[in-house]
Design a protein around this nucleic acid. Structure first.
Lengths: 335, 335
DNA sequence: CTGAAAGCGCTTACAG
DNA sequence: CTGAAAGCGCTTACAG
């Protein structure tokens, strides 16, 4: 194969030569630690401009033993939040890091090996995984698993998710609902686990009834199947779905068996999906500040990479419950 | 800040020492070009295993002047196809490349500068942009703009998109529709441009009527606004939307003014959004093979990086028109 | 405030 | 088939 070599860029030596200084001085100029004669700085300034010099970051990495790169591991199944990824990428860039995409294919074991390999490879300084993986702590570099790091560091992860779930149930109970059902996400996901835990806690705390909890694979079809499989006399009047896709599947399943939404069945989602917002009925849901999530996760990771204390999370609520058309009081017969 | 240094890995020198050979021989072993005494190979084999040696890729990059990294530029606005990104990432990894995420924020000019900078930085060997950018050709490294590369190389881009649009209109015309409307995407996107062009061509070719074409910003809200703003006597019975999000906004807009979908108005989308699939009415749409798109784009880019001829695109149809509940014959009065 | 030296870990010619 | 040499472009001590 005819490897095409890109044209070479100017080196630090050429800049030094043109400016009439040593290359170390240019290196110092790049670091910009203040102490430098203005005349020298000016000469280097113009040499850099004349040659359109940009430091070779690979060479820098080699010397500093830092890559200034982070990896983000995305679940290969279904959906992932692109707003989060974009915010993560932007935050990383601002801090001088590149963000590599890695997809987590295969089973739990394979995913762990993939991440462990990546951590060992020396290719990145830190890893943020949005996919659930059980990576042993104490590796070569920091590995953050989304959803879990909050718990460890701020004790906020579970709480943040939890407050929204209990707010949802509170609201539905206020409308008169007594019998609930939870469409859970795969329990390998921390977020899905949290929502289920708080669902059960809140049901118990308020003295309500849960007809059951079913774990789905995040697909609308699985939610559809669960709802159509419910006994006619189950008494469920409100479904708390772990996300909007599940909620849509649930609503469609309800329609298919003659249950009206929200008249016969109320359905709550999670994520504020744009399509679900314009669906009929429009989805009641939880608006999540994905930008803040992505930013916080990366800042957290960078702090770990640098051995600094974890930064405080973004102020303001991460989750916001939004009521739309998919919920209503239960039918009179069920009250 | 207390920079934490990750533990060092074994070097090629240590492997060489343990195996009792020179480090060049180990380097040769890594390249595996055949000619090597079996005994030597075996000694190196066990040294590599004993030390858990993995080559330092940064050092390799420095020497070879190739980073083995590609960048994928994502539009910062709205939606991006995660299946495509995941497939792109997996394909890149298989070929020995890492894939960096870059988000394209800001206006057209700013985006161009960002990509030009990236191309000049020496950080990546090639760039694939899913965001529309007008990057001048002939830069340091190959830059592929999604949607345009097909045209240049296989003459397939426009055709592939086009055939689906004309198939949609054909089908609707077959149902009796005569007056159409197109909700276009931002015309900076090649895909949006193609769909609009073929829409107009097909309307003309079949002797149908187009009430108009409106450019949206890909948001459901913009589609909603356009549909609610249509004059009551416009005569439109079929809307061809450039994607499912727009289609949902259009349907909701129709509902809001008392038009039934599909009885009064047929709406076609694009993308096979999972939520739209379970909406009521379910969206008629175009199923796009995103995996093939992502794979083909990366293989194409890698070929360009290596100076090889472009590989043939994946066999099989890229787009497939799927009819669901959102379309029907026009109301009798309109025929 | 600036320069001469050393070295990060690898690969690519060049000898033998 | 294998080894000694050179060098990729930078930064980090160390002198002065």
């Amino acid at each position: 194969m005819a490897q095409v070599d890109p044209p070479r860029r100017a080196t630090i030596h050429q800049v030094a030569q043109l400016a009439g200084v040593s290359h170390q001085t240019v290196s110092r100029y790049l670091r910009d630690d203040g102490g430098m004669k203005p005349a020298t700085r000016l000469r280097i300034d113009s040499a850099v401009k004349a040659l359109d010099y940009r430091p070779n970051l690979v060479a820098r990495s080699m010397r500093t033993r830092r890559t200034n790169r982070l990896a983000i591991v995305l679940p290969s199944t279904l959906y992932f939040p692109h707003r989060l990824v974009l915010a993560a990428s932007a935050t990383a860039h601002e801090a001088g890091y590149q963000l590599d995409i890695v997809s987590a294919e295969g089973g739990a074991e394979q995913r762990v090996r993939r991440i462990t390999d990546l951590a060992d490879s020396g290719q990145v300084d830190g890893i943020l995984s949005l996919a659930p993986v059980d990576v042993p702590a104490g590796g070569r570099i920091p590995v953050l698993i989304s959803g879990t790091y909050d718990e460890q560091m701020h004790g906020l992860g579970e709480l943040a998710d939890g407050s929204a779930v209990s707010e949802i149930i509170d609201h539905l109970a206020g409308l008169g609902h007594r019998t609930f059902f939870h469409l859970a996400g795969p329990q390998s996901f921390t977020s899905a686990r949290n929502r289920k835990v708080v669902y059960l806690e809140t049901i118990a705390r308020l003295g309500l009834r849960s007809y059951g909890v079913t774990e789905t694979d995040w697909s609308a079809q699985s939610a559809y199947d669960v709802i159509t499989g419910l006994p006619a006399d189950c008494g469920v009047t409100a479904v708390v779905a772990a996300n909007d896709v599940l909620a849509m599947g649930a609503i469609r399943g309800a329609f298919s068996r003659g249950w009206r939404v929200p008249d016969d069945l109320s359905v709550f989602g999670w994520d504020d999906d744009e399509v679900g917002r314009f669906a009929t009925p429009s989805l009641s849901t939880v608006v999540v500040d994905r930008e803040a999530q992505g930013r916080d996760a990366i800042l957290h990771l960078i702090a770990a990479v640098r051995g600094e204390p974890a930064p405080p999370p973004s102020p303001g609520p991460l989750n916001q419950v939004v009521v739309r058309e998919s919920i209503a009081p239960p039918p009179p017969a069920a009250r």
